[in-house]
Design a protein around this nucleic acid. Structure first.
Lengths: 148, 148
DNA sequence: ATGATAATGATTTTTATTATCATTTAGTAT
DNA sequence: ATACTAAATGATAATAAAAATCATTATCAT
C-alpha cells in the first residue's frame, strides 16, 4: 500500500527528470526515497542527516538542490512558518489541506474544509481574481498543550 | 480624519512605550510617523529610505528595531510572501483581512469574508484547537494582469 | 545636575539558501 | 567498449536579511 504510493511518487519524479533531460543519479535515488519515507514536514537539514546515513559522501547542496527539484515537479512544497527554517511537505497523493499551527509546541495539524475552499473561490471571483492556489494557516493552542 | 487615526496610532505606540518603561526618542517619533504615512505594506529598507530624508543620521538598525517594536504592540505585522523580503503591514484601526496575491505583478489585495472567518473557528474547534489568529493567502492572477 | 540605563548607529555575526567551479559521472553516439 | 558532451556533485564561497554586539549618546527619574 505504502509501497504503491512510493512507486507512484518515484515514477512521477523519474518522469519529470526524463522530460527535462536531466539525469538519474544514485544521490537522487537516495534523496527521493528518504524524502518519501521521512515525516510529512521535514527541513533540508533533517533530510541531509538522514540521507548521510545511507550515503555518507553526500553534500548538503545536493540535498537542497533535489528538494528544490521535488518542489518544481510538485512532489514537495515549501512551508515557511514564522522564523523557522523552510520545511518541505510531501504533496503526492495528498489532497490540498490547511494547517493548524500550535504556537506553543509548533505542531502542525493538517485539516480540510470544503465549504471554506468553495467560499475562497467565490471571494476571489468577486474580486475578478483567478485563484491558482492558497494557503490557510490557523495559529493557536493545540489540544495537547491545553491539557498541560 | 486621517489625523485622528494618526493620533490614535501614535498614542497606542506611546502607551506601549510607557508601559514597558521604554523611552521617547526623536528617531522613534520620525519612524512611527513615517510608517503610519507610508503605504500599507512597506519593507524595512523602504522605510529606512523614507526616514533618512527627515533624519539623515538615522541607522538602519534603528528602523528595524522600531519596526519590531511596532509589531510587538500590534500596530504592525510581518507579512512574508515567497522569497520577497519581509513587509510590515499597518494594523491599527484595520480589521482583520486576508490577502489576494497576484503571482504576476505581486499586488496585494485586502479582502474579507465573514463566513470564512466563522467556518475557520468551527474547523479549529472540531480539532480541539483554540485559534488565536490566522492567515489566508490566495495566490492567482489579478484583474489588471488578466487584461494585459 | 547626576546617575542609571535605554537607545542609537556602525559594524559584525548569524543563518538559511543560492551560486560558483573544478571534478566526476551519466547517457548518447560512435 | 570508447569517447564525448553536458549535467550533477561536493566543497566552498557568496548573498542577503535580520539579529546581535558594543562603544557612545541621550533620556528621564531623582
Amino acid at each position: 500500500m505504502d509501497n504503491i504510493n512510493k512507486k507512484e511518487f518515484k515514477s512521477t519524479f523519474i518522469k519529470y527528470i526524463e522530460e527535462k533531460g536531466l539525469r538519474h543519479t544514485k544521490q537522487r535515488d537516495v534523496i527521493v526515497d528518504a524524502f518519501f519515507s521521512a515525516g510529512r514536514h521535514i527541513t533540508s537539514e533533517e533530510l541531509f542527516n538522514i540521507v548521510k546515513k545511507k550515503y555518507p559522501e553526500i553534500g548538503y547542496a545536493t540535498v537542497q538542490r533535489n528538494l528544490n527539484l521535488l518542489c518544481k515537479c510538485s512532489l514537495a512544497e515549501e512551508i515557511k512558518i514564522g522564523k523557522q527554517k523552510t520545511r518541505y511537505e510531501q504533496k503526492y497523493g495528498n489532497t490540498h489541506h490547511d494547517h493548524l499551527i500550535c504556537l506553543q509546541c509548533g505542531r502542525l495539524i493538517e485539516v480540510n474544509d470544503d465549504k471554506i475552499e468553495k467560499l475562497q473561490e467565490k471571494l476571489a471571483k468577486k474580486n475578478n481574481f483567478t485563484p491558482v492556489k492558497h494557503k490557510l494557516e490557523i495559529y493557536g493552542i493545540c489540544a495537547g498543550c491545553k491539557s498541560k
